[in-house]
């Protein structure tokens, strides 16, 4: 039961990431930051201003930046590679795969402007497939960040994880849903709201949308469990299987293609362990488009109302079993 959302305000995820990098730069001298001419967008300029000797702006050359990071990591550095999610995945995907993931080098990949968050720039700058691509590369770990608080904690955590980690970051200024008490544990699902009628599993900005949806469902006397599954790989299979067993239905919500992302990871787990009725909400095999962030999300079907509707349908399906 959720009476009131614990929202303390709004903050841009990229700003929190930029600040976290500065914090990290102070505590860990091995951290170096690479950017491909988008440091004002990614907010790595904050690190660059504070630690210019450890900041490398390589120009508009993403593949070169990625392979450079391999060299840094092979010599004991912890490079954070920065550009838009869509470019870090596919423009720089070959060096990422072959000289970072394959040798399991300690490189951190920060995919900025992920999902539809760069809404006005349109489909070329929005990422619909990054989680699917990253998740399928061996050795690579994947974290999808839900708000500014989690951006900071995930960035600090990534630096402590040995091997390549992908951080999926939003451009958007979105509600801060976690306070200073929030305990981010890499690889572990975080239960935001207890409940037994079904489980809603979300990550990224969709966690906030799901919280709103849970409030609406509560008013209809439906009590879903809500999990923030920030780590898509390795997946907390135990939490997912437990949710399937205890609530009997699962709805996933992600700002990503319905192919290969959070929903797929959850489906793979429950299909092989404890099949229950399930619905995957995301982009239905289509690119985004230009417009206001909320407008584009709505056009892609990612609204509070759609979450409520899908939750109700799932509960019906569950009762018919």
């Amino acid at each position: 039961m959720l009476n009131k959302l614990p929202i303390t305000g709004k903050k841009a995820v990229r700003a929190a990431y930029g600040e976290a990098l500065v914090e990290l730069g102070n505590t860990n001298k091995d951290v170096v930051v690479l950017d491909a001419d988008v440091s004002s967008s990614t907010q790595t300029k904050l690190f660059g201003q504070k630690y210019p000797e450890r900041f490398f702006n390589v120009g508009i050359a993403e593949g070169n930046m990625m392979a450079m990071a391999a060299g840094f990591a092979a010599c004991g550095k912890i490079p954070f590679v920065n550009t838009f999610a869509v470019f870090i995945t596919l423009r720089a995907g070959d060096p990422l795969r072959s000289v970072i993931a394959y040798p399991n080098l300690n490189v951190k990949l920060a995919g900025a402007y992920a999902g539809l968050s760069d809404s006005y720039d349109g489909a070329t700058h929005q990422s619909v497939e990054d989680v699917a691509v990253m998740r399928s590369i061996p050795n690579l770990k994947v974290i999808v960040v839900a708000d500014a608080t989690e951006a900071r904690l995930a960035t600090l955590a990534a630096a402590k994880i040995e091997g390549p980690v992908y951080l999926r970051l939003s451009r958007a200024e979105i509600p801060v849903i976690f306070d200073g008490e929030y305990n981010f544990v890499f690889g572990k699902a975080h239960q935001l709201i207890p409940g037994d009628d079904l489980t809603i599993i979300a990550n990224g900005y969709m966690v906030y949308k799901a919280m709103e949806a849970v409030q609406a469902l509560n008013r209809k006397s439906i009590y879903p469990r809500l999990l923030n599954l920030h780590t898509v790989k390795p997946l907390d299979t135990e939490a997912v299987i437990t949710a399937a067993k205890e609530t009997g239905a699962i709805l996933t919500v992600e700002e990503h293609s319905i192919y290969g992302g959070l929903g797929s990871a959850v489906a793979e787990t429950i299909a092989q362990n404890y099949p229950v009725p399930m619905k995957i909400m995301g982009f239905n095999d289509r690119f985004g488009e230009t417009g206001g962030y909320e407008e584009v999300l709505a056009k892609m079907g990612l609204t509070i109302e759609e979450i409520v509707l899908n939750a109700e349908r799932l509960i019906k399906k569950k009762s018919e079993r």
């Binding site: 593949g63 930046m65 990625m66 450079m68 060299g71 840094f72 490079p79």
Partner: peptide, 13 residues
């Protein structure tokens, strides 16, 4: 094509 960039990372390190 990747080795030269990786070498730059090593040289900078």
């Amino acid at each position: 094509g990747l080795g030269l960039s990786a070498g730059i990372g090593m040289a900078l390190a």
